[in-house]
Design a protein around this nucleic acid. Structure first.
Lengths: 247, 247
DNA sequence: ACAAAAGTGTTCCGCATACACCCATGC
DNA sequence: GCATGGGTGTATGCGGAACACTTTTGT
Protein backbone atom coordinates (compact mmCIF):
# COMPACT_ATOMS: atom_id res chain seq x y z
CA UNK A 1 0.00 0.00 0.00
CA UNK A 2 1.29 3.35 -1.00
CA UNK A 3 1.11 5.70 1.92
CA UNK A 4 1.76 8.89 0.12
CA UNK A 5 2.29 9.86 -3.45
CA UNK A 6 5.84 9.67 -4.60
CA UNK A 7 5.06 12.01 -7.47
CA UNK A 8 7.81 14.57 -7.60
CA UNK A 9 8.78 13.37 -4.14
CA UNK A 10 6.13 15.49 -2.53
CA UNK A 11 4.43 14.69 0.71
CA UNK A 12 1.10 16.24 -0.06
CA UNK A 13 -0.21 16.84 3.41
CA UNK A 14 2.17 19.12 5.20
CA UNK A 15 3.55 22.38 3.93
CA UNK A 16 5.70 25.17 5.19
CA UNK A 17 5.07 28.89 4.76
CA UNK A 18 7.75 31.49 5.28
CA UNK A 19 7.07 34.93 6.65
CA UNK A 20 10.13 36.95 5.73
CA UNK A 21 10.30 40.35 7.37
CA UNK A 22 12.45 43.23 6.22
CA UNK A 23 12.92 46.83 7.22
CA UNK A 24 13.56 49.68 4.81
CA UNK A 25 14.32 52.32 7.39
CA UNK A 26 10.69 53.36 7.64
CA UNK A 27 8.29 50.48 7.84
CA UNK A 28 8.29 46.80 8.53
CA UNK A 29 7.85 44.83 5.32
CA UNK A 30 6.96 41.29 4.33
CA UNK A 31 7.99 39.44 1.25
CA UNK A 32 5.02 38.11 -0.70
CA UNK A 33 4.69 36.01 -3.77
CA UNK A 34 2.12 36.88 -6.40
CA UNK A 35 -0.32 34.15 -7.32
CA UNK A 36 -0.78 35.63 -10.74
CA UNK A 37 0.69 33.44 -13.42
CA UNK A 38 1.41 35.41 -16.59
CA UNK A 39 1.69 32.30 -18.73
CA UNK A 40 -1.72 31.02 -17.73
CA UNK A 41 -3.26 34.39 -17.08
CA UNK A 42 -5.03 32.61 -14.37
CA UNK A 43 -7.14 35.35 -12.98
CA UNK A 44 -5.46 35.35 -9.60
CA UNK A 45 -4.57 38.74 -8.36
CA UNK A 46 -3.55 38.12 -4.82
CA UNK A 47 -0.52 37.20 -2.74
CA UNK A 48 0.77 34.51 -0.47
CA UNK A 49 3.80 33.73 1.60
CA UNK A 50 6.56 31.76 -0.07
CA UNK A 51 5.96 28.15 0.79
CA UNK A 52 5.96 24.58 -0.42
CA UNK A 53 4.75 21.14 0.32
CA UNK A 54 7.32 19.25 2.34
CA UNK A 55 9.19 16.51 0.55
CA UNK A 56 8.71 12.96 1.64
CA UNK A 57 11.94 12.65 3.53
CA UNK A 58 12.66 16.22 4.28
CA UNK A 59 12.89 17.88 7.63
CA UNK A 60 10.46 20.74 8.17
CA UNK A 61 13.22 23.26 8.81
CA UNK A 62 14.99 22.16 5.67
CA UNK A 63 11.81 22.45 3.65
CA UNK A 64 11.31 26.02 4.80
CA UNK A 65 14.81 27.03 3.75
CA UNK A 66 14.48 25.25 0.42
CA UNK A 67 11.09 26.76 -0.36
CA UNK A 68 12.29 30.25 0.49
CA UNK A 69 15.30 29.79 -1.73
CA UNK A 70 13.36 28.40 -4.66
CA UNK A 71 10.84 31.19 -4.61
CA UNK A 72 12.93 34.19 -3.63
CA UNK A 73 16.50 33.23 -4.46
CA UNK A 74 17.53 34.04 -0.89
CA UNK A 75 20.00 31.53 0.47
CA UNK A 76 20.37 29.95 3.89
CA UNK A 77 17.74 31.96 5.67
CA UNK A 78 17.59 31.29 9.37
CA UNK A 79 13.92 30.54 9.49
CA UNK A 80 12.34 29.60 12.79
CA UNK A 81 9.11 27.74 13.21
CA UNK A 82 6.51 29.76 15.10
CA UNK A 83 3.16 28.04 14.77
CA UNK A 84 1.21 25.42 12.86
CA UNK A 85 -2.06 26.07 11.08
CA UNK A 86 -4.38 23.17 10.60
CA UNK A 87 -7.99 24.25 10.26
CA UNK A 88 -9.52 21.57 8.02
CA UNK A 89 -10.79 24.12 5.53
CA UNK A 90 -7.82 26.45 5.51
CA UNK A 91 -6.96 25.74 1.87
CA UNK A 92 -10.17 24.30 0.60
CA UNK A 93 -11.95 27.20 -1.01
CA UNK A 94 -12.48 26.28 -4.67
CA UNK A 95 -10.21 29.10 -5.68
CA UNK A 96 -7.34 28.02 -3.42
CA UNK A 97 -7.80 24.37 -4.23
CA UNK A 98 -7.63 24.97 -7.93
CA UNK A 99 -4.50 27.01 -7.55
CA UNK A 100 -2.83 24.35 -5.45
CA UNK A 101 -3.57 21.55 -7.84
CA UNK A 102 -2.35 23.65 -10.70
CA UNK A 103 0.85 24.56 -8.88
CA UNK A 104 1.69 21.12 -7.56
CA UNK A 105 0.39 19.12 -10.52
CA UNK A 106 -1.33 16.69 -8.24
CA UNK A 107 -4.45 16.20 -6.24
CA UNK A 108 -4.22 17.85 -2.91
CA UNK A 109 -6.41 17.10 0.07
CA UNK A 110 -6.19 18.81 3.35
CA UNK A 111 -2.95 20.62 4.07
CA UNK A 112 -1.52 21.42 7.46
CA UNK A 113 1.08 24.14 7.24
CA UNK A 114 3.92 24.99 9.55
CA UNK A 115 4.66 28.72 9.76
CA UNK A 116 8.25 29.90 9.73
CA UNK A 117 9.61 33.38 10.09
CA UNK A 118 12.83 35.29 9.82
CA UNK A 119 14.09 38.85 9.81
CA UNK A 120 16.47 39.91 7.08
CA UNK A 121 18.39 42.95 5.92
CA UNK A 122 16.95 44.75 2.92
CA UNK A 123 20.29 45.51 1.34
CA UNK A 124 20.49 46.79 -2.22
CA UNK A 125 20.45 43.31 -3.69
CA UNK A 126 17.23 42.51 -1.88
CA UNK A 127 15.28 45.75 -2.27
CA UNK A 128 13.74 44.60 -5.48
CA UNK A 129 13.54 41.23 -7.09
CA UNK A 130 14.05 40.95 -10.80
CA UNK A 131 12.11 39.18 -13.47
CA UNK A 132 13.33 35.84 -12.22
CA UNK A 133 11.35 35.98 -9.04
CA UNK A 134 7.71 36.53 -8.59
CA UNK A 135 7.97 38.25 -5.23
CA UNK A 136 7.90 41.76 -3.82
CA UNK A 137 7.95 43.61 -0.53
CA UNK A 138 4.80 44.98 1.06
CA UNK A 139 4.20 47.05 4.11
CA UNK A 140 3.00 44.99 7.00
CA UNK A 141 -0.34 46.61 7.66
CA UNK A 142 -0.95 47.48 4.04
CA UNK A 143 -4.60 46.54 4.05
CA UNK A 144 -4.94 46.77 0.30
CA UNK A 145 -2.99 43.56 -0.21
CA UNK A 146 -5.16 40.50 -0.65
CA UNK A 147 -3.68 37.44 1.00
CA UNK A 148 -4.64 33.93 -0.07
CA UNK A 149 -5.62 30.97 2.12
CA UNK A 150 -5.46 31.73 5.83
CA UNK A 151 -2.38 33.86 5.30
CA UNK A 152 -3.88 36.92 7.00
CA UNK A 153 -4.01 34.82 10.15
CA UNK A 154 -0.47 33.60 9.60
CA UNK A 155 0.76 37.16 9.23
CA UNK A 156 -0.97 38.26 12.41
CA UNK A 157 0.55 35.40 14.36
CA UNK A 158 3.98 36.04 12.88
CA UNK A 159 3.81 39.65 14.02
CA UNK A 160 2.90 38.61 17.55
CA UNK A 161 5.77 36.20 17.50
CA UNK A 162 8.45 38.64 16.40
CA UNK A 163 7.28 41.03 19.09
CA UNK A 164 7.73 38.28 21.61
CA UNK A 165 11.13 37.41 20.21
CA UNK A 166 12.45 40.95 20.10
CA UNK A 167 11.16 41.64 23.60
CA UNK A 168 12.87 38.62 25.04
CA UNK A 169 16.02 38.69 22.95
CA UNK A 170 16.67 42.19 21.62
CA UNK A 171 19.60 40.93 19.60
CA UNK A 172 17.28 39.67 16.90
CA UNK A 173 16.44 43.19 15.66
CA UNK A 174 19.92 43.52 14.29
CA UNK A 175 18.97 40.94 11.72
CA UNK A 176 16.91 43.70 10.13
CA UNK A 177 19.65 46.29 10.07
CA UNK A 178 22.80 46.70 8.00
CA UNK A 179 26.13 46.04 9.73
CA UNK A 180 26.54 49.76 10.27
CA UNK A 181 23.47 51.62 11.46
CA UNK A 182 22.56 54.75 13.39
CA UNK A 183 20.66 55.08 16.64
CA UNK A 184 17.77 56.52 14.67
CA UNK A 185 17.56 53.48 12.46
CA UNK A 186 17.52 51.15 15.42
CA UNK A 187 14.82 53.22 17.03
CA UNK A 188 12.81 53.25 13.83
CA UNK A 189 13.02 49.47 13.69
CA UNK A 190 11.63 49.17 17.20
CA UNK A 191 8.94 51.69 16.37
CA UNK A 192 7.92 49.70 13.32
CA UNK A 193 7.86 46.40 15.16
CA UNK A 194 5.95 47.57 18.20
CA UNK A 195 3.89 50.28 16.52
CA UNK A 196 4.80 52.88 19.10
CA UNK A 197 7.13 55.80 19.59
CA UNK A 198 10.06 56.05 21.97
CA UNK A 199 11.56 58.86 23.97
CA UNK A 200 14.91 59.33 22.27
CA UNK A 201 16.98 59.74 25.43
CA UNK A 202 15.45 56.78 27.20
CA UNK A 203 15.65 54.60 24.14
CA UNK A 204 19.34 55.26 23.75
CA UNK A 205 20.05 54.54 27.37
CA UNK A 206 18.12 51.32 27.42
CA UNK A 207 18.99 49.85 24.06
CA UNK A 208 22.34 51.34 23.22
CA UNK A 209 24.32 52.61 26.19
CA UNK A 210 23.34 49.66 28.34
CA UNK A 211 24.13 47.21 25.61
CA UNK A 212 27.82 46.33 25.70
CA UNK A 213 27.58 44.48 22.40
CA UNK A 214 26.80 47.69 20.53
CA UNK A 215 29.97 49.54 19.70
CA UNK A 216 30.18 53.09 18.39
CA UNK A 217 32.28 53.55 15.27
CA UNK A 218 34.27 56.65 14.32
CA UNK A 219 32.49 56.91 11.02
CA UNK A 220 29.56 59.26 10.63
CA UNK A 221 26.68 59.78 8.26
CA UNK A 222 27.32 61.99 5.28
CA UNK A 223 25.10 64.23 3.17
CA UNK A 224 22.34 64.38 5.68
CA UNK A 225 20.57 67.65 6.19
CA UNK A 226 21.06 67.64 9.92
CA UNK A 227 23.82 66.83 12.33
CA UNK A 228 25.48 63.63 11.20
CA UNK A 229 24.99 60.65 13.46
CA UNK A 230 27.78 58.24 14.21
CA UNK A 231 27.41 54.71 13.04
CA UNK A 232 26.98 51.81 15.43
CA UNK A 233 27.81 48.17 15.03
CA UNK A 234 26.45 45.11 16.77
CA UNK A 235 29.19 42.71 17.82
CA UNK A 236 27.83 39.42 16.51
CA UNK A 237 30.89 37.45 17.40
CA UNK A 238 30.78 38.42 21.05
CA UNK A 239 27.07 37.69 21.01
CA UNK A 240 27.58 34.21 19.62
CA UNK A 241 30.23 33.59 22.25
CA UNK A 242 27.81 34.67 24.99
CA UNK A 243 25.13 32.33 23.75
CA UNK A 244 27.40 29.32 23.81
CA UNK A 245 28.51 30.14 27.34
CA UNK A 246 25.02 30.85 28.70
CA UNK A 247 23.59 27.60 27.49
CA UNK B 1 -7.38 9.24 -6.74
CA UNK B 2 -7.56 8.67 -3.07
CA UNK B 3 -5.47 11.25 -1.30
CA UNK B 4 -5.51 9.71 2.13
CA UNK B 5 -6.87 6.58 3.61
CA UNK B 6 -10.42 6.85 4.78
CA UNK B 7 -9.91 3.82 7.01
CA UNK B 8 -11.39 4.68 10.37
CA UNK B 9 -11.46 8.28 9.19
CA UNK B 10 -7.81 8.74 10.05
CA UNK B 11 -5.51 11.14 8.32
CA UNK B 12 -2.33 9.19 8.71
CA UNK B 13 0.21 11.93 8.38
CA UNK B 14 -0.38 14.43 11.14
CA UNK B 15 -0.83 13.67 14.79
CA UNK B 16 -1.21 15.57 18.01
CA UNK B 17 0.53 14.83 21.29
CA UNK B 18 -0.64 16.24 24.58
CA UNK B 19 1.69 17.18 27.38
CA UNK B 20 -0.52 17.39 30.45
CA UNK B 21 1.16 18.89 33.48
CA UNK B 22 -0.03 18.54 37.04
CA UNK B 23 1.24 19.56 40.45
CA UNK B 24 0.89 17.47 43.59
CA UNK B 25 2.11 20.08 46.04
CA UNK B 26 5.71 18.96 45.67
CA UNK B 27 6.79 18.33 42.13
CA UNK B 28 5.67 19.06 38.64
CA UNK B 29 4.20 15.96 37.02
CA UNK B 30 3.32 14.81 33.52
CA UNK B 31 0.67 12.38 32.51
CA UNK B 32 2.04 9.51 30.45
CA UNK B 33 0.49 6.58 28.73
CA UNK B 34 2.10 3.18 28.94
CA UNK B 35 2.91 1.50 25.66
CA UNK B 36 2.65 -1.89 27.29
CA UNK B 37 -0.35 -3.80 26.04
CA UNK B 38 -1.33 -6.55 28.48
CA UNK B 39 -3.46 -8.34 25.91
CA UNK B 40 -0.65 -8.62 23.43
CA UNK B 41 2.14 -8.69 25.97
CA UNK B 42 3.95 -6.75 23.38
CA UNK B 43 7.26 -6.32 25.04
CA UNK B 44 6.99 -2.56 25.24
CA UNK B 45 7.88 -1.14 28.57
CA UNK B 46 8.00 2.54 27.96
CA UNK B 47 5.78 5.59 27.91
CA UNK B 48 4.48 8.25 25.60
CA UNK B 49 2.31 11.32 25.70
CA UNK B 50 -1.38 10.82 25.02
CA UNK B 51 -1.89 11.50 21.35
CA UNK B 52 -3.60 10.45 18.17
CA UNK B 53 -3.57 10.77 14.47
CA UNK B 54 -5.77 13.64 13.38
CA UNK B 55 -9.02 12.71 11.67
CA UNK B 56 -9.51 13.64 8.08
CA UNK B 57 -11.76 16.60 8.71
CA UNK B 58 -10.81 17.47 12.19
CA UNK B 59 -9.24 20.64 13.45
CA UNK B 60 -5.90 20.19 15.21
CA UNK B 61 -7.14 21.72 18.45
CA UNK B 62 -10.16 19.47 18.39
CA UNK B 63 -8.01 16.43 17.77
CA UNK B 64 -5.88 17.24 20.80
CA UNK B 65 -8.88 17.52 23.09
CA UNK B 66 -10.42 14.35 21.69
CA UNK B 67 -7.22 12.35 21.99
CA UNK B 68 -6.68 13.49 25.56
CA UNK B 69 -10.22 12.53 26.44
CA UNK B 70 -10.08 9.13 24.79
CA UNK B 71 -6.87 8.19 26.49
CA UNK B 72 -7.23 9.78 29.91
CA UNK B 73 -10.94 10.35 30.36
CA UNK B 74 -10.29 14.01 31.08
CA UNK B 75 -12.86 16.26 29.44
CA UNK B 76 -12.56 19.61 27.72
CA UNK B 77 -8.93 20.25 28.47
CA UNK B 78 -7.76 23.66 27.39
CA UNK B 79 -4.83 22.44 25.38
CA UNK B 80 -2.67 24.95 23.60
CA UNK B 81 -0.40 24.21 20.68
CA UNK B 82 3.24 24.96 21.43
CA UNK B 83 5.37 23.47 18.70
CA UNK B 84 5.43 21.03 15.80
CA UNK B 85 7.86 18.17 15.45
CA UNK B 86 8.64 16.92 12.01
CA UNK B 87 12.02 15.27 11.79
CA UNK B 88 11.59 12.70 9.01
CA UNK B 89 12.74 9.86 11.23
CA UNK B 90 11.02 10.86 14.42
CA UNK B 91 8.76 7.81 14.47
CA UNK B 92 10.57 5.48 12.17
CA UNK B 93 12.59 3.28 14.44
CA UNK B 94 11.43 -0.32 13.80
CA UNK B 95 10.15 -0.49 17.34
CA UNK B 96 8.07 2.69 17.07
CA UNK B 97 6.85 1.85 13.60
CA UNK B 98 5.64 -1.56 14.67
CA UNK B 99 3.82 -0.08 17.62
CA UNK B 100 2.12 2.54 15.46
CA UNK B 101 0.91 0.10 12.87
CA UNK B 102 -0.38 -2.15 15.58
CA UNK B 103 -2.17 0.70 17.32
CA UNK B 104 -3.70 2.30 14.25
CA UNK B 105 -4.32 -0.88 12.30
CA UNK B 106 -2.92 0.68 9.19
CA UNK B 107 0.28 1.40 7.43
CA UNK B 108 1.85 4.55 8.64
CA UNK B 109 4.50 6.54 6.87
CA UNK B 110 6.08 9.63 8.14
CA UNK B 111 4.18 11.45 10.87
CA UNK B 112 4.43 15.11 11.72
CA UNK B 113 3.11 15.80 15.19
CA UNK B 114 1.78 18.98 16.72
CA UNK B 115 2.57 19.33 20.41
CA UNK B 116 -0.10 20.61 22.78
CA UNK B 117 0.14 21.35 26.44
CA UNK B 118 -2.03 22.23 29.40
CA UNK B 119 -1.80 22.58 33.14
CA UNK B 120 -4.42 20.89 35.29
CA UNK B 121 -5.35 20.45 38.93
CA UNK B 122 -4.50 17.08 40.42
CA UNK B 123 -7.67 16.82 42.47
CA UNK B 124 -8.59 13.52 44.13
CA UNK B 125 -10.38 12.22 41.05
CA UNK B 126 -7.26 12.77 38.97
CA UNK B 127 -4.52 11.62 41.34
CA UNK B 128 -4.73 8.09 40.09
CA UNK B 129 -6.36 6.60 37.08
CA UNK B 130 -8.22 3.35 37.40
CA UNK B 131 -8.10 0.19 35.35
CA UNK B 132 -9.96 1.89 32.53
CA UNK B 133 -7.10 4.11 31.62
CA UNK B 134 -3.59 3.19 30.82
CA UNK B 135 -2.02 6.38 32.13
CA UNK B 136 -0.18 7.56 35.19
CA UNK B 137 1.61 10.58 36.58
CA UNK B 138 5.38 10.88 36.57
CA UNK B 139 7.73 13.44 37.93
CA UNK B 140 9.03 15.75 35.27
CA UNK B 141 12.73 15.09 35.52
CA UNK B 142 12.32 11.47 36.53
CA UNK B 143 15.11 10.18 34.38
CA UNK B 144 14.18 6.55 34.89
CA UNK B 145 11.14 6.88 32.67
CA UNK B 146 11.72 5.75 29.10
CA UNK B 147 9.91 7.93 26.59
CA UNK B 148 9.08 6.66 23.12
CA UNK B 149 9.60 8.41 19.77
CA UNK B 150 11.03 11.91 20.10
CA UNK B 151 8.97 12.50 23.23
CA UNK B 152 11.98 13.43 25.36
CA UNK B 153 12.43 16.38 23.00
CA UNK B 154 8.74 17.19 23.16
CA UNK B 155 8.86 17.21 26.95
CA UNK B 156 11.87 19.51 27.02
CA UNK B 157 10.19 21.96 24.67
CA UNK B 158 6.95 21.81 26.63
CA UNK B 159 8.82 22.72 29.79
CA UNK B 160 10.45 25.69 28.11
CA UNK B 161 7.08 26.77 26.89
CA UNK B 162 5.28 26.66 30.23
CA UNK B 163 8.09 28.67 31.74
CA UNK B 164 7.59 31.26 29.06
CA UNK B 165 3.85 31.22 29.60
CA UNK B 166 3.99 31.51 33.37
CA UNK B 167 6.56 34.27 33.17
CA UNK B 168 4.49 36.33 30.79
CA UNK B 169 1.06 35.52 32.21
CA UNK B 170 1.36 34.44 35.84
CA UNK B 171 -2.37 33.67 35.93
CA UNK B 172 -1.77 30.33 34.25
CA UNK B 173 -0.17 28.78 37.36
CA UNK B 174 -3.54 28.77 39.06
CA UNK B 175 -4.58 26.11 36.61
CA UNK B 176 -2.33 23.80 38.61
CA UNK B 177 -3.75 24.69 42.00
CA UNK B 178 -7.04 23.92 43.73
CA UNK B 179 -9.55 26.78 44.12
CA UNK B 180 -8.31 27.33 47.66
CA UNK B 181 -4.59 27.25 48.16
CA UNK B 182 -1.96 28.63 50.51
CA UNK B 183 0.93 30.94 49.79
CA UNK B 184 3.25 28.01 50.33
CA UNK B 185 1.53 25.95 47.69
CA UNK B 186 1.74 28.76 45.17
CA UNK B 187 5.39 29.21 45.96
CA UNK B 188 6.02 25.48 45.64
CA UNK B 189 4.38 25.53 42.21
CA UNK B 190 6.70 28.29 41.04
CA UNK B 191 9.67 26.47 42.52
CA UNK B 192 8.73 23.31 40.68
CA UNK B 193 8.20 25.07 37.38
CA UNK B 194 11.35 27.16 37.44
CA UNK B 195 13.54 24.78 39.43
CA UNK B 196 14.61 27.44 41.87
CA UNK B 197 13.86 28.68 45.34
CA UNK B 198 12.27 31.97 46.32
CA UNK B 199 12.74 34.33 49.23
CA UNK B 200 9.44 33.97 51.06
CA UNK B 201 8.92 37.64 51.80
CA UNK B 202 9.75 38.80 48.31
CA UNK B 203 7.70 36.08 46.72
CA UNK B 204 4.64 37.07 48.69
CA UNK B 205 5.03 40.71 47.86
CA UNK B 206 5.51 40.12 44.18
CA UNK B 207 3.06 37.37 43.50
CA UNK B 208 0.42 37.79 46.17
CA UNK B 209 0.24 41.24 47.71
CA UNK B 210 0.74 42.96 44.39
CA UNK B 211 -1.81 40.77 42.70
CA UNK B 212 -5.28 42.23 43.19
CA UNK B 213 -6.91 39.11 41.76
CA UNK B 214 -5.71 37.00 44.66
CA UNK B 215 -8.05 37.35 47.59
CA UNK B 216 -7.37 36.13 51.11
CA UNK B 217 -10.10 33.98 52.65
CA UNK B 218 -11.00 33.78 56.33
CA UNK B 219 -10.53 30.04 56.31
CA UNK B 220 -7.25 28.55 57.50
CA UNK B 221 -5.44 25.29 57.24
CA UNK B 222 -6.25 22.69 59.88
CA UNK B 223 -4.27 19.86 61.37
CA UNK B 224 -0.97 21.14 60.24
CA UNK B 225 1.93 20.87 62.62
CA UNK B 226 2.88 24.50 62.32
CA UNK B 227 1.10 27.82 62.27
CA UNK B 228 -1.92 27.49 60.01
CA UNK B 229 -1.84 29.51 56.84
CA UNK B 230 -4.89 31.27 55.51
CA UNK B 231 -6.26 30.10 52.24
CA UNK B 232 -6.14 32.23 49.14
CA UNK B 233 -8.34 32.26 46.10
CA UNK B 234 -7.70 33.45 42.56
CA UNK B 235 -10.56 35.48 41.19
CA UNK B 236 -11.06 33.87 37.82
CA UNK B 237 -14.12 35.87 36.96
CA UNK B 238 -12.40 39.20 37.42
CA UNK B 239 -9.48 37.83 35.43
CA UNK B 240 -11.69 36.81 32.53
CA UNK B 241 -13.29 40.25 32.60
CA UNK B 242 -9.85 41.87 32.45
CA UNK B 243 -8.83 39.80 29.46
CA UNK B 244 -11.88 40.75 27.47
CA UNK B 245 -11.29 44.42 28.23
CA UNK B 246 -7.56 44.39 27.51
CA UNK B 247 -7.95 42.80 24.12
C1' DA C 1 10.61 23.90 74.84
C1' DC C 2 11.15 23.00 70.12
C1' DA C 3 10.33 22.53 65.23
C1' DA C 4 8.18 24.39 61.29
C1' DA C 5 6.32 27.55 58.77
C1' DA C 6 3.26 32.06 58.82
C1' DG C 7 3.37 36.75 58.59
C1' DT C 8 5.36 41.52 58.47
C1' DG C 9 9.19 45.70 57.57
C1' DT C 10 13.25 48.07 55.84
C1' DT C 11 17.10 49.25 53.01
C1' DC C 12 19.46 49.44 48.70
C1' DC C 13 19.87 49.48 43.86
C1' DG C 14 18.74 49.36 39.07
C1' DC C 15 15.58 50.53 35.65
C1' DA C 16 11.72 53.10 33.46
C1' DT C 17 9.79 57.52 32.73
C1' DA C 18 9.40 62.38 32.10
C1' DC C 19 11.44 66.35 30.85
C1' DA C 20 15.35 70.23 28.98
C1' DC C 21 19.22 71.90 26.97
C1' DC C 22 23.05 72.52 23.64
C1' DC C 23 25.30 70.91 19.10
C1' DA C 24 26.01 70.11 14.08
C1' DT C 25 24.46 70.37 9.31
C1' DG C 26 21.99 71.69 4.98
C1' DC C 27 18.86 74.90 3.02
C1' DG D 1 18.55 81.74 10.92
C1' DC D 2 15.75 77.98 10.89
C1' DA D 3 14.51 73.28 10.67
C1' DT D 4 15.95 68.74 11.73
C1' DG D 5 17.71 65.53 14.29
C1' DG D 6 22.19 64.24 17.31
C1' DG D 7 23.91 63.89 21.80
C1' DT D 8 23.88 64.39 26.88
C1' DG D 9 21.92 65.32 31.95
C1' DT D 10 18.82 64.96 35.95
C1' DA D 11 14.89 63.90 39.12
C1' DT D 12 11.36 60.80 40.47
C1' DG D 13 9.18 56.51 41.46
C1' DC D 14 8.52 51.65 41.16
C1' DG D 15 9.90 47.01 41.57
C1' DG D 16 13.42 43.43 42.62
C1' DA D 17 16.85 41.54 45.95
C1' DA D 18 18.86 40.89 50.41
C1' DC D 19 18.04 40.41 54.99
C1' DA D 20 15.63 39.80 60.51
C1' DC D 21 12.30 39.40 63.66
C1' DT D 22 7.81 38.01 65.85
C1' DT D 23 3.69 34.76 65.78
C1' DT D 24 1.12 30.51 65.75
C1' DT D 25 0.47 25.58 66.05
C1' DG D 26 1.36 20.54 66.96
C1' DT D 27 4.44 17.36 69.27
Amino acid sequence: MEIYSATRGLYPHVSVDCVIFGFDGQALKVLLMSRRDEAHNSGYNDYKFPGSLVYANEDLDTAAVRAAHDITGLRDLRLRQFRTFGAPDRASSPRDKRWLENATRQQVGRIVTVGYLTLIKMGEEVRSFGEDYNVAWFDVGDSTVQLAFDHPLILAEALREIRRQVASRPAVVFDLLPPKFTARELRAAYSAIFSRTYDVRNFNKKFIENEPLIVALDEKERNVKHRAARYLRFDRKAYARQLTIDS
